[in-house]
Design a protein around this nucleic acid. Sequence first.
DNA 1: CGTAATCCTGACCATTTGGTCAAACTTATT
DNA 2: AATAAGTTTGACCAAATGGTCAGGATTACG
Lengths: 209, 209
Amino acid sequence: MTEQRPRTRIQKRNTAAIFEAALEVFSQHGFRGATLDQIAKAAGLSKPNLLYYFPSKEAIHVALLSKLMDTWLDPLRALDADGEPIEELLAYVRRKLQMSRDFPRESRLFANEIVQGAPRMIAAIEGELKALVDEKAALIEGWIAAGKIAAVHPYHLIFSIWSLTQHYADFDVQVRAILGGETVDPFPQAEEYLETLFTRLLSPVTGQV
Amino acid sequence: MTEQRPRTRIQKRNTAAIFEAALEVFSQHGFRGATLDQIAKAAGLSKPNLLYYFPSKEAIHVALLSKLMDTWLDPLRALDADGEPIEELLAYVRRKLQMSRDFPRESRLFANEIVQGAPRMIAAIEGELKALVDEKAALIEGWIAAGKIAAVHPYHLIFSIWSLTQHYADFDVQVRAILGGETVDPFPQAEEYLETLFTRLLSPVTGQV
DNA sequence: CGTAATCCTGACCATTTGGTCAAACTTATT
DNA sequence: AATAAGTTTGACCAAATGGTCAGGATTACG
């Protein structure tokens, strides 16, 4: 098997199990920290069987990253030129924060990879991701030019949305440790805070000198 | 040698070299991804000699983390109750962004550790760090109560300062890849953007319904 | 139902890696 | 200069790890 789509029922089941296991293990330990044995065990397969489906550890990692990339960018893709600008951006922030809540492993997988220089992702970042960001940054500049939102550097606006929302997934342990008791769910507070932040940042400054 | 301070001239020189090398290697590859051979080579020592100064790889990592922790928190410690609130917070943001620019390896070292659940740092986070944040959060609440800054959740304000500034160190590759040409230095733009962001966020809302 | 294709495994291998140790070499001290 | 204390190293080891392979089990299919 190389990189074709799964054909048989068994292939479907097992590659799905492998992706799930790899996500769990890679996101928790990083590429180097993960072992094939861990992944195999988590997937309920033997190590040789794992390597029957993917030629190497690296191949699993790469396949996983590229599989998740698409989903990961959906919230940004959904930023709609025809919507009300501030509400569109706030909705993007909300969607992104949900991703942190619902898919923290995906967030950590990417975080691990990028912190270490994105050796297996740099092409996708410079290509696909950059293209999408360029497009949306242009859209944002349009909104600024039209006076719909306050003037801010569009690329850094996007960076700030990423960093603020992903922080709650990537640094989850720290957030929870500092907020104290396990009773607290940080996400509702975070949502309120971020809504305030971006509302104040983006509301056009009217009647100012 | 256990964990005492270096005594002799040679010990001083070599432990310094080890810390520098360990910072370089651990921040780039994470704990698991780093090898003793890499660290030894970067420090200009043989592996057994490295282990003459530290009993294990883990001991090096722990010693490095705890050594850097202090410096890392200095910008927050410097938040001054007697200063002008908004200017104090903006200055904190600026200091923190400088740290990202000047000490990206330190930032990545912590990022690597925390993303993976902070196994070797959780105690320091729950202790020292939490205590400091609690103190400063109280200070911020005081400013809010006094009407000096707009009402925001103080803990999330601090989280947002961390995430926004550290993003430029931890996700440096991504930031540069998306901004395009290597000619661009992201930091001046980032500084301007963050100043705008926090000014708008924190300025007390006067004369509003 | 027979056979080809697919799937799975135990045994095995080479390399990497964290760590040890005895002995040799330096440096400081008297 | 003698000697003690501190420093360094080559050789070595056991465990972990990524990966291979020949053959056996299972499944799909005409």
